[in-house]
Amino acid sequence: MHIEYPHVAADLASQLAERAHALRMLILRTHAAAGQGHLGSSLSIVEILVALMSSGVETGSWGKAPHGDRIVLSKGHAALAFYCALAQTGLIPQRDLESFSRNGGKLEPHPNERTVPAVQASTGSLGQGLSIGVGLALGSRMCGHNDSCFVILGDGELNEGQCWEAAMSASRLRLGNLVAVVDANGFQQDGPMDEIMPVTGLAEAWRTLGWAAAEVDGHDCAMLLATLAATRSADRPALIVARTVKGRGVPFIEHMTESHFPPPLTAAELVMIDQLAAKGTANARG
């Protein structure tokens, strides 16, 4: 599928980029305050989260009612990014981020719907989120609502057979209200996917299973939004393979296995990253 670069208003693209930068800095500061966390895979889904949260997804029901749109973070180790996105959009209080990864804290290292009602599904044991998403999409349809469900998966996670069971069932059930976004950062905990267990030809494979599928730069919010709109249809689930960089935005951990669970950034490093991103945004505008 070829998707033209969207002719979005320059100010919208700029707003999305600024929102992504703010989310990235919130993740880095929360990580620094907690002293730990899965940083690399949190940074790779920043633009995916911003695009999804800006796509018209209805969040008013989260933690409150059984119906409404849903975002399931199947790659639960990126909970840090998800919590920060919830805080950025006011779905949890900003001060709750102080409990991230604290002993007995509400914001556990992996999403827990028991402690954070705005979390759509407890995950962390990889491979389970897409099945939950199939159930959410099917259940909404059975109840006559047809609300959308977006599931964020990791490419490493796709080593799990359950993801493929879920992919088969989603197309069989013709779940046009289901979207899977794969954060294809090319790494898993032990190293590059290519050196451990590669998942190749993903978009083509799922097209064969009956999905609509597209690949896109996963750090381009405007392109992600356009691809989401172009890929969805009434009776086929949609797969977006978002090519990303693990550790994106922190030059000294990008593309590194060690970005999975790195030490916190120092105050000076945080200032440097902030300035670097601001300069990048200015250049993009120029």
Binding site: P66, S131, V134, G135, L136, G139, A166
Partner: peptide, 8 residues
């Protein structure tokens, strides 16, 4: 997993 989504 699908059943858990239906229950939700």
């Amino acid at each position: 997993g699908v059943a858990s989504g239906l229950a939700r």
